[in-house]
Amino acid sequence: MDNREAENSESCRIFRRLQDVVEVIKERNSILAADSILNEVARKYDQYPDLDSMKAAIIRLLDSGEHSGVIESLQYLGWRFRWQWLREEFESRRLEWSRSGDLRKVRAYELILEAFDGDWEDRDCFPSLSL
């Protein structure tokens, strides 16, 4: 397996776990129920940082068209890692949707961007962020 295939498989693994988060939130209507999966994704990244795979998985999640669970997943990752590239991606997409007049998506990106602030109130919804 060459590096590109390995990166692709890691990106797919991350994406599948993020999809699991979306499904758990939809099924149980609970962010708390998905916290352990998000923490697992974050810890795995901490142990084996592969930013390209993480980026690919996040962009794929953004482009999936899902809303419920995606916002919470991206808030978690935004707060946990505070990557500048991620913030810029969200700001760019928010601006794009603002120009097209889709206020629902604009608000979704605003909610995600709130997680980059040091005083983000909803972080208490994720016990693993309080550790």
Rank of each mutant, 00 (worst) to 15 (best):
P49S: 03
M54A: 07
R107K: 14
R80D: 06
L129N: 11
D102Y: 01
V22L: 00
W79Y: 15
F15I: 03
W79E: 14
A57I: 10
W85G: 10
K55T: 04
E10P: 05
Y109I: 11
A34E: 03
R82Q: 15
E40L: 01
E110H: 12
A57W: 04
N3R: 14
H67D: 13
E91H: 06
W85V: 14
C12L: 13
R80E: 12
G65M: 10
C125L: 13
L38P: 04
S130M: 15
E7W: 15
E5N: 13
N3C: 12
E27R: 08
N8E: 13
R99V: 00
R28I: 02
R13C: 03
I112G: 07
D50C: 06
P49C: 03
W83A: 11
Q19K: 03
R123M: 11
R43E: 05
F90H: 07
V41C: 00
L103H: 03
R99L: 02
S92D: 10
I71H: 04
L32H: 12
E114V: 05
M1F: 14
D63C: 09
A6R: 15
A108I: 11
S130H: 09
V41T: 01
A56L: 10
E121G: 09
L77H: 07
F15W: 03
S36K: 08
F81D: 03
V21S: 00
I71G: 11
I58F: 04
Y45E: 02
L95W: 01
R43A: 04
Y109N: 10
D20I: 01
D35R: 07
R60V: 05
I14K: 00
W85K: 09
N3K: 15
S68T: 15
V41F: 01
D2C: 15
D122M: 09
S36N: 01
E72V: 13
Q84P: 15
E40M: 00
S30Q: 10
D117G: 06
D35Q: 04
L61E: 13
C125Y: 10
R93Y: 01
F90M: 15
E96K: 11
N8K: 13
L113A: 07
L38R: 02
K105D: 02
Y48Q: 05
N39M: 04
R82A: 15
